[in-house]
């Protein structure tokens, strides 16, 4: 792996970590405010801000993981991805044990597309944020998880112990469960 490739992986990773953190905060605060699907008509200014934050960070996390982090991680594992369409990359990541489910990831991406919907905003579309919460919970995982062993070996290859240390903190299944539990 070249130095620029290492940097790309590092930067993508840091960006995704930030999105995750802010997204988790937004979800936590939404949960605290006890908003349900019945409430979309009566949004306060603060509620709207939280929903916007949720939608923005969800979109950014999806996009940065798909366009930056996943390609960089595949390159770190010496995968030849130049001609690989996205679906093939996801299947490969699933094969390598990095993604629990390529189809699951595509579902999360479809949710992301919902936030960029063309049609005029409606109370129904605002309630997408609430449904997303429960959908994410139902899935049991929001973020790309992998076993510490695999992430360790992949990051060792790119020679960055900094990333390896951070990755073991992020990619624990129990963290994901904790996040989901908050948004019941």
């Amino acid at each position: 792996m070249t130095a620029p490739e290492i940097h790309a992986l590092q930067h993508a990773y840091t960006a995704c970590l930030t999105h995750e953190e802010v997204l988790r905060e937004a979800l936590h605060d939404l949960n605290q405010r006890g908003l349900t699907a019945a409430d979309p008509e009566r949004l306060s200014k603060e509620d709207r801000r939280l929903l916007d934050q949720f939608a923005y960070r969800y979109t950014r996390l999806q996009d940065d993981m798909g366009a930056r982090f996943m390609p960089a991680a595949l390159r770190a594992m010496d995968e030849e991805i130049a001609a690989m369409p996205m679906v093939d990359r996801l299947n490969r990541l699933e094969q390598l044990g990095w993604l629990p489910s390529a189809e699951g990831w595509l579902d999360l991406r479809r949710i992301r597309n919902e936030f960029a919907h063309d049609y005029p905003e409606t109370p129904q579309e605002r309630s997408i944020a609430y449904s997303s919460r429960s959908l994410l919970h139902a899935r049991g995982w929001v973020f790309w998880t992998t076993s510490p062993g695999r992430s360790g070996s992949a990051f060792r290859k790119c020679g960055s112990s900094q990333i390896r240390a951070k990755s073991n903190g992020l990619h624990q299944h129990k963290n994901v469960t904790k996040i989901s539990d908050n948004f019941r």
């Binding site: 699907a37 595509l106 949710i111 449904s131 997303s132």
Partner: peptide, 16 residues
């Protein structure tokens, strides 16, 4: 029934 988004995502998956 509160499952509109989940159904929509599932429908999109089948179509794609």
């Amino acid at each position: 029934d509160g499952q509109t988004l989940a159904r929509k995502i599932r429908f999109l998956g089948l179509l794609e």
